[in-house]
Design a protein around this nucleic acid. Sequence first.
DNA 1: CTACGAACTAGACCCGACTCTAGGTCAAGA
DNA 2: TCTTGACCTAGAGTCGGGTCTAGTTCGTAG
Lengths: 133, 133
Amino acid sequence: MLDPMQLSIGQVAERTGLSVHALRFYEKEGILAHQVHRGPGGRRVYTQQDVDWLRMCIMLRMSGMPVPEIRRYTELVRQGDGNELQRLDILKEHQERVRQQMAQLQECMDLITYKVGKYQNYVNSIAAKAVGQ
Amino acid sequence: MLDPMQLSIGQVAERTGLSVHALRFYEKEGILAHQVHRGPGGRRVYTQQDVDWLRMCIMLRMSGMPVPEIRRYTELVRQGDGNELQRLDILKEHQERVRQQMAQLQECMDLITYKVGKYQNYVNSIAAKAVGQ
DNA sequence: CTACGAACTAGACCCGACTCTAGGTCAAGA
DNA sequence: TCTTGACCTAGAGTCGGGTCTAGTTCGTAG
């Protein structure tokens, strides 16, 4: 049993929804703000901070930030104070991309909604006819 | 020169933003409502309807509908009247997915905006100090 | 003791969606 | 005639983001 603040890879997988494979993959890709500490037998020991960081990375991934860019951001954080402007740049750029993505998605949604409406009307009218028979 | 209503693959590529490769790929994948007519020399001849259909497919793809599902939808349309309920199902299901996707994206956006705000404040405060010197 | 479950590493494999290559046809212009 | 450029087919290659396998090593429970 570990200290309650010390989490095994499996526990982190549960808590984040990532697979243990994905967790090791992310680590290899340099996506952990502070490199994972190893416990007895060379096992990874995560902290709550690691989990929080991973959750943010998950958000970035979900919104389409590519792994290499998350790595760049992570590296800046790892380097410590002094590069906040660069971090801000990355975030702002991504924010803009997400904004565009949402706009696009809304456009698609409008088309789909229009089509759904049309088919719904048609299907309803057929159903009405069937009832009227 | 073709009849103005007859478009070559290159023209369709221009008009849709898809590459000629992608157009052939989509055709092979069965994503064309009515199969492309061939002109002299076996060349593809597209109509405006094809372009319109492609534009819808592009919307579906952009919003994350996988190619096989677009194919299923396409097949229903190709079969003609009588399966409107099935088409409606596909569209509604996708609509729901897009809705979820947008909600997720909004969540990510909120986090990013929060972080951008924090870094912006910090960076501003540093800048203010520099000026005050 | 032994068997189990969870962890480890390195590296192979997979999937979706294109993208590109090789090798060829054809028509128009210099 | 020769070249250029757009098109053709079949099939190989690429890329991102994981996922899975093989072969081990632990620590604990029966």
